[in-house]
C-alpha cells in the first residue's frame, strides 16, 4: 500500500466541504453525577480527519459513544447533516472485535448482512475492501490465524466496507507494537487518500494525532472537555517525510505543551 497511490482531487478547504455532523453544547453526566463531558461542540465536514486527544477520563471515548448513538447526551444535541444517520457509520474499536467463528470475509460482510444483503451479492465489494487493507489473500482465514496487526486491518475493512459517511476509531492501534502501529498509521492515511473517508480518531498519542489528523481537539479530564483545537495544515496525502519535518515537530510540541497544561499537578498519577 504505497502512499503514492492515485491522488484524489485536492480536498477543498473546510468551509466548502459539506457538513456531516454537528455536536452542539453536548453534556454527558453519568448516573453517579460524574460529568464525563462538558459543553462539547464539534463540526465534522466531509473528508475531515479529527483526532480527540487527551488523558484517560477526558471523555474522548464518551464523545465517540455519543456520536455512535450508544448513549444519549444529557444536554445538547447531536445533529446529522445532509440526510446522514448513524446507519452510515463505521466503527473500529481498540480490540479488533472480530467474530472468531467467522472467516475474514464473513466478518467484513457483517454490516451488509445486518442490512439483509447476501454474501454473494456483496462479495465484490468485500474483496475490494480487503484488497485496500492488503488482506485479499486471507478472505477465507479465521481471525486466530492472523497477527494482531492483520486482525486490526480486518476490523478497518469492516468499517470501510459500506463506504460510510463517518468512521469512528477508538484508540485502534493502542494495543499494537510500535512498528505495526506506524505501518498501520501510514496505511490508514493512504486509505483515507483513496477513499476520502471522514474520520474521528480517539488517541492518547500526540505523535499519532499530529501525523494523522488535520484537526486535533485536545481534551482535559475532570470534567471531560475540549480545551483547544489545533489545526494541522499539512495537506494529504502525507508521507514518511511528514514524520520528520520541522512543521511536524513544531505542531507536536505545541500539542504536547497544551496536553501537559491540562494535567493539574499530581494528576498524572491517575
Amino acid at each position: 500500500m504505497a502512499i503514492t497511490a492515485a491522488r484524489p482531487d485536492p480536498i477543498p478547504s473546510p468551509e466548502l466541504r459539506e457538513p456531516v455532523l454537528r455536536m452542539q453544547e453536548v453534556d454527558k453526566t453519568f448516573n453517579g453525577g460524574v460529568v464525563a463531558l462538558r459543553r462539547m461542540s464539534l463540526e465534522v465536514r466531509k473528508g475531515d480527519f479529527i483526532s480527540l486527544l487527551g488523558p484517560s477520563g477526558c471523555g474522548k471515548s464518551t464523545a465517540l459513544r455519543l456520536i455512535a448513538g450508544l448513549m444519549r447526551p444529557t444536554l445538547g444535541k447531536i445533529v446529522w447533516e445532509g440526510g446522514a444517520s448513524r446507519d452510515d457509520l463505521g466503527v473500529v474499536f481498540q480490540e479488533p472485535t472480530l467474530m472468531p467463528w467467522a472467516t475474514v470475509e464473513q466478518n467484513v460482510w457483517l454490516p451488509f448482512r445486518v442490512r439483509g444483503e447476501s454474501l454473494r451479492s456483496t462479495r465484490d465489494r468485500i474483496m475490494e475492501t480487503l484488497e485496500l487493507v492488503g488482506l485479499e489473500k486471507f478472505a477465507k482465514s479465521y481471525p486466530r490465524e492472523l497477527s494482531g496487526g492483520m486482525k486490526m486491518r480486518v476490523s478497518i475493512a469492516r468499517a470501510l466496507v459500506t463506504n460510510p459517511r463517518l468512521i469512528l476509531m477508538d484508540e485502534p492501534f493502542a494495543a499494537l507494537d510500535e512498528i505495526t502501529r506506524q505501518k498501520l498509521n501510514d496505511d490508514l492515511l493512504s486509505l483515507k487518500a483513496k477513499t476520502g473517508a471522514t474520520v474521528i480518531f480517539v488517541t492518547h498519542s500526540v505523535f499519532e494525532s499530529v501525523f494523522l489528523s488535520d484537526r486535533i481537539l485536545v481534551m482535559a479530564a475532570r470534567p471531560g472537555r475540549v480545551i483547544r483545537e489545533i489545526a494541522v495544515p499539512e495537506p494529504y496525502p502525507r508521507g514518511i517525510e511528514w514524520r520528520t519535518s520541522p512543521e511536524y515537530a513544531a505542531i507536536a510540541r505545541q500539542t504536547s505543551d497544551t496536553l501537559h497544561s491540562t494535567l493539574a499537578p499530581g494528576s498524572e498519577a491517575h
Binding site: 448513538g69 450508544l70 448513524r86 474499536f93 472485535t97 467474530m99 457483517l110 454490516p111 445486518v114
Partner: peptide
C-alpha cells in the same frame, strides 16, 4: 458475548433476531 461486538450490532441497528443469530448463538456454542 463480546461487549464491543454487541455495541457494533446496536450501531448497525440489528434486530433482536439478528443479534441472536449472528452474535449470541455462535458465542454460546
Amino acid at each position: 458475548t463480546d461487549h464491543n461486538l454487541s455495541d457494533l450490532m446496536t450501531i448497525y441497528r440489528a434486530s433482536r433476531w439478528q443479534r441472536l443469530r449472528y452474535l449470541q448463538l455462535p458465542s454460546a456454542l
